[in-house]
């Protein structure tokens, strides 16, 4: 968010102060979920910053006697496009606007998105989401046919982030969500008995640790600017997760010829299906 504001207002990233969510001072938002913050909050933040910029540009335009549309904000200055020496600093613009120091401008904006309902017959819609998360996982693994244990050797998480506002964060987010999903794919499971959760603590419900990291892993950020995102960005929170289970199941099928259709893909399920496949191939003659 700070990078979006800095880019829009032409100030340094370190000059932007982010207030933690607090209903006393921050406006309404739903939740941080569905990979929506970069897009929804980002668009609102960018529009709010643009309103402040427009107000400052009007002041500068009047002082310099130019058209506000010809002004650019960069490096903490607002200047005339093509002649950077005709400019005012943002501080000077505030002073010109209010005639005194220590003044503030407030920008507010709402990002509200729309979707068209799906056709009940076809299940299709012209626009059922603001954006999609194109994602790919490449995995190389080994299956131990004696124990059913799966070892991930190579693992690549690929995802489209739109414009990556912070490429390193996008790489981390893609890989992180992919590794999280690797846990869901291979061992994480909530176990219920008569409606009661049996493994409701981290002692019984294991999540991916550093020991579950594949031997070789990397994430790849694909950047296809999205038309309605802030500076072309879109959500990337869950992109890396989407294709992990399918890739792992495909690789297991490629390795030992069995298809597991239920998560998590545990050694028990692999062994059971391997022995079922063996029985099918070599029927037990004693029982017939």
């Amino acid at each position: 968010m700070a990078q979006i504001v800095a880019e829009e207002l032409g100030v340094g990233f370190e000059q932007v102060h982010i207030v933690q969510p607090d209903t006393d001072i921050t406006p309404y938002d739903t939740i941080t979920a569905g990979s929506r913050s970069t897009y929804h909050m980002g668009n609102a933040v960018r529009m709010a910053a643009a309103k402040i910029k427009a107000e400052l540009a009007a002041v500068v335009a009047a002082k310099l006697e130019v058209n506000p549309e010809d002004l650019v904000a960069r490096d903490r200055r607002i200047f005339v496009r093509g002649s950077p020496d005709r400019s005012m600093t943002i501080g000077q613009a505030f002073l010109a606007r209010f005639g005194s120091l220590g003044t503030t401008l407030t920008g507010e904006a709402i990002c509200q998105t729309t979707a068209l309902p799906m056709d009940p017959e076809t299940g299709q819609s012209e626009k059922c989401t603001e954006y999609w998360f194109p994602s790919a996982t490449a995995v190389e693994l080994e299956v131990d046919k004696e124990t059913g244990q799966v070892s991930i050797l190579k693992f690549f998480a690929v995802g489209d982030a739109g414009t990556a506002i912070n490429p390193k964060h996008c790489e981390q987010q893609l890989l992180g969500s992919a590794i999280t999903h690797l846990g869901l794919t291979l061992f994480e499971e909530m176990v219920f008995e008569e409606g009661r959760l049996l493994n409701g603590s981290l002692l019984d419900y294991q999540i991916a640790s550093v020991k579950d990291m594949p031997e070789e892993f990397r994430s790849v950020v694909v950047q296809v600017p999205h038309e309605s995102g802030p500076f072309g960005a879109k959500g990337v929170g869950e992109t890396g997760a989407l294709t992990v289970s399918a890739a792992v199941a495909n690789a297991i099928e490629d390795a030992v010829g069995i298809r597991i259709r239920e998560l998590p893909i545990t050694p028990e399920k692999i062994l059971r299906q391997l022995s079922a496949a063996r029985r099918e191939k070599e029927p037990d003659t004693r029982s017939s």
């Binding site: 981390q172 992180g176 999540i207 550093v210």
Partner: peptide, 19 residues
């Protein structure tokens, strides 16, 4: 390294950068 750090969990799963 992996053995020693296996008792620390990172739910962002940023283990690669931590190593």
């Amino acid at each position: 390294v992996r053995e020693f750090l296996s008792g620390n969990l990172c739910r962002c799963a940023g283990y690669g950068d931590i190593i």
